[in-house]
């Protein structure tokens, strides 16, 4: 059965190849970050979100959402956490953060730099994550951690956002 010509334009094949390439890169970042031990469980630097922000202006919303889904599933499987409670937290928080960053970029990308977009992502990520944790272990006292996690998000969000700003400024120079 003949396929319509536009299925195989150069642009589409190129975008598909880039998707595969960046998916592998994001999986690598995700897996390496999971192996990084921090003093408190569930605490992550959020380096994978840098990948999301770097791709967002050039490939669009559905592209980065697809990269997120693949990297969180394959990345978690690689480090043996797929479908563990930690995976549910990473998936829920990451999905919320990715959607929040897409929304922030599309609606306010003209007035915010990646610092602001990263702050929104990190903050939403940790907010959703703490609420999910409270739901999973059925302890309302988990919410006592909320200020610490949200404060930590302001730090990691700033670091990641400023890094993303620097990388893109360097690319354009």
């Amino acid at each position: 059965m003949p396929l319509p010509d536009d299925r195989f334009t150069f642009e589409r094949i190129e975008k598909g190849a880039h998707f595969a390439l960046f998916a592998v890169f994001a999986i690598g970042v995700h897996a390496l970050e999971s192996l990084l031990t921090l003093p408190v469980p569930w605490l992550r630097l959020g380096l994978s979100h840098i990948v999301t922000m770097l791709l967002l202006p050039f490939y669009g919303s559905s592209f980065v959402l697809g990269i997120f889904l693949i990297r969180v599933i394959v990345g978690s499987a690689l480090v043996g956490k797929l479908f563990s409670p930690g995976f549910i937290l990473a998936f829920g928080g990451g999905l919320a953060a990715t959607l929040a960053m897409i929304a922030a970029f599309r609606l306010a990308g003209r007035v915010l730099s990646f610092w602001g977009i990263s702050l929104v992502g990190a903050w939403v990520h940790n907010l959703i994550q703490v609420f999910l944790a409270a739901l999973i272990i059925q302890q309302a006292s988990t919410l006592l951690l909320l200020p610490y996690f949200l404060g930590f998000a302001l730090v990691t969000g700033s670091v990641n956002g400023i890094l993303t700003n620097r990388i893109l400024a360097w690319k354009d120079s």
């Binding site: 915010l112 730099s113 990646f114 602001g116 956002g161 700003n165």
Partner: peptide, 9 residues
């Protein structure tokens, strides 16, 4: 996109 911090950030 912008790569310099703004007052909105």
């Amino acid at each position: 996109y912008g790569t310099s911090p703004t007052r909105w950030d």
